[in-house]
Simulated assay, not measured.
Amino acid sequence: MQLKPIAQQVVAIVGASSGIGREAALRFAQRGAKVVVSARSESGLASLVNEIHQLGGEATAVTADVSVFEQVQAIADKAVATYGRLDTWVHSSATGVFAPFEQVTPEEFNRVIDVTLMGQVYGAMVALPHLKREGQGALIHISSMEGRRALPLQSPYSCAKHGVEGFLESLRVELQHEGSGVSVTSIKPAVINTPFYNNGLTKLGVKPTGIPPYYEPSLVVDAILYTAEHPTRDFIVGDVGKVLDVLQRVSPSLVDSLLVLTGFKGQKTDELKSADAPNNLYEPVAEHDRIEGDFGNLTIPSVTDWFDRHPALGWGVAGTVGAAVLALLANQASGGKS
């Protein structure tokens, strides 16, 4: 399967006003792609398009709520009306609720599903006919390691991301059966330093956090750019994500135990925050229209991502990671004694 060079692509990026989507839009434009950016935040999109134009790039914006099919359809229609076609669809929009399951209302749970799962479904529905018409293209969906391993205090988000994984697996096989030239990629980031933790509705009494360590959004964008040119089934971003993936396959009960120890305190900061504080469950929060979140001091580099983007060297690093995981499991089995 061949995909066009980025400089020749028309790319739609959904969830582009902040975080991963915002940096992806800037990087695609810098590489010469024509970009259509979408989010609920009109002011965030306006500042993004202005920044792209200042860099000499081409961009247009569509304000849309991904929980409404017709508004998602408008994104694809705008891309084709403005630039004549669509080559790559990047879907990054998501929202979450941080709370014990018993404190989540039906309406809140449904809203997370509508945005974080159904928005991705709608994106594929509207993009796929245009990609098929071109004879090739890429559907790139930003999932999460929570699509492989759910976390406590995030049941709606974990549920949505598991749904994304099931949906993409089904769609991918259907397209393979057709002999389609459309690539379907699930990008599964570990904990990333974006405004996601500022934006989420919290009922924890404090500002939520991911379980450290964090990785920079640029790592996820590197994976997006790579998969826009190189058909890839799955791309886990972050060394810790790859270790978690192996541990979950080897011993889910071990991961249960680890999360009992770390998954509750590890998702809480010391900063008080009420459930009434601004959040993006139903409306955008303009002050969070930026790429990075508040946890830059907790970010670390990731080694394995570079090898995943250079697969000729990937087997060596896979062996290294495997050895590290086995060593960790052996250490756990011996009660942590060295």
Rank of each mutant, 00 (worst) to 15 (best):
G241D: 07
G200N: 05
G205Y: 07
R233V: 14
F196T: 14
F196W: 14
D245Q: 03
K265Y: 04
D256N: 06
S253L: 00
H230D: 07
Y214V: 11
D234Q: 14
T202H: 04
T209E: 13
L201P: 05
D239M: 10
P195L: 06
S257H: 03
D239K: 11
T227W: 00
Y214D: 10
N193I: 11
D270W: 04
G238P: 08
A228K: 12
T227P: 00
S218Q: 12
T194G: 08
P212K: 00
V240C: 01
G241Q: 04
E229V: 12
Y215M: 12
I211T: 00
G210P: 07
Q248Y: 03
K268I: 01
I211G: 02
I192T: 15
L244I: 04
T209Y: 05
P213Y: 12
P213W: 11
T209S: 14
K273F: 01
V246M: 03
N198G: 07
V240A: 13
S253R: 04
V191A: 12
P231A: 13
N198Q: 15
L259Y: 05
V191E: 06
L254E: 03
V191G: 01
S257Y: 00
K207E: 13
G266H: 04
L244R: 01
V260A: 14
P217H: 07
I224Q: 06
S253Y: 00
T269W: 06
L219E: 15
P217Q: 09
T269K: 06
G241R: 05
I211N: 07
G205E: 12
